[in-house]
Structure formats: structure tokens, C-alpha cells
């Protein structure tokens, strides 16, 4: 009698742990990206818009890393964004351009890298010099209205 109870309790705990494992690996981001095996690159932006920690870093639309830290440098009045990039994507020229894009009109913001032509490569802890800030919709509308009223 006690043996069958043991078996069913074992099954119950097993199913429970399997469910936890499934939630961890299949139903969350744990299985998809690990911060080990990555190197850090920083970039300065005048305006980062709605960029957040864990936003994606993409090249040609392929996700190669994520934003690790966002800080504000009060000497230069710029935002400093540190990103983790996976080790297998280590071949980026020194003059790579980092821009902040929006996926879709109202979607999430991410950092898009465009490789340049330099022979020297980006290394761990190096800084991307060429950056382009986020497009802020309100500013664009403001500029548009301003230029319209000037035309008249």
C-alpha cells in the first residue's frame, strides 16, 4: 500500500519538476540567451528614446546580444549604453555604427549595428564611436509642423 503511494508521489513531484523545467527552458528567455560567452561594448547616445536594459542588439536583423546597462554621463551630457555581444559574433570593425531603431511604428526599440570598413576590430570594453540617436516621434512631428508653418 505504501509502495503505491510512494510511486504516485514520485510521479507527482516528477511532473511538477518537469513543468518547472518547461517553464524555464521553453516558456521563458532562459534557454535563448546566456550572458556567458559574451563581450562588452559601450556606446554613447544623445538620446536613447525608450531603450531598456535587455533590449536586443541586432545586426542585419539578427539578434546577437542585449543591452546590459544604461547610464548617464553628466560630464558630456550623453547616455552611455553597455551591451553584451555573443562571442561568436566578434568580427566587428572599429568604425561600426550603432543606431537605435524601432521595430514597427510603435514597437520596441533596439540597437542596430552596421559594420564599417576598418581593419581593426572591436574588442572587449571598447567603445563604438559612431552612433545615431533614437528617433523621437514628437520631435519629428514638431519639426514637420514647424517647417509647414514656415512655408506659408
Amino acid at each position: 500500500m505504501f509502495r503505491s503511494i510512494e510511486i504516485s508521489v514520485g510521479l507527482f513531484v516528477g511532473i511538477g519538476l518537469a513543468a518547472l523545467f518547461m517553464l524555464a527552458m521553453q516558456a521563458s528567455n532562459l534557454g535563448s540567451f546566456t550572458s556567458e560567452g559574451s563581450y562588452q561594448v559601450s556606446a554613447r547616445f544623445v538620446n536613447i528614446g525608450g531603450l531598456k536594459v535587455k533590449s536586443a542588439v541586432k545586426v542585419s536583423g539578427v539578434k546577437i546580444g542585449q543591452v546590459a546597462d544604461i547610464d548617464y554621463d553628466s560630464n558630456t551630457f550623453e547616455a552611455v549604453v553597455v551591451m553584451n555581444i555573443e562571442d561568436k559574433f566578434s568580427q566587428f570593425p572599429r568604425d561600426t555604427i550603432a543606431s537605435i531603431f524601432t521595430s514597427g511604428l510603435l514597437g520596441e526599440q533596439y540597437i542596430g549595428l552596421e559594420p564599417g570598413g576598418d581593419i581593426k576590430l572591436l574588442e572587449n570594453q571598447s567603445e563604438i564611436r559612431h552612433t545615431q540617436s533614437a528617433m523621437v516621434l514628437e520631435q519629428l512631428i514638431g519639426q514637420f509642423l514647424f517647417s509647414k508653418s514656415k512655408d506659408k
Partner: peptide, 8 residues
Amino acid sequence: LLAAIFSA
């Protein structure tokens, strides 16, 4: 365990 099973 029950909550994890429920979600899964």
C-alpha cells in the same frame, strides 16, 4: 509544483 503544472 501544482502552480507550475497549472501554468505549463
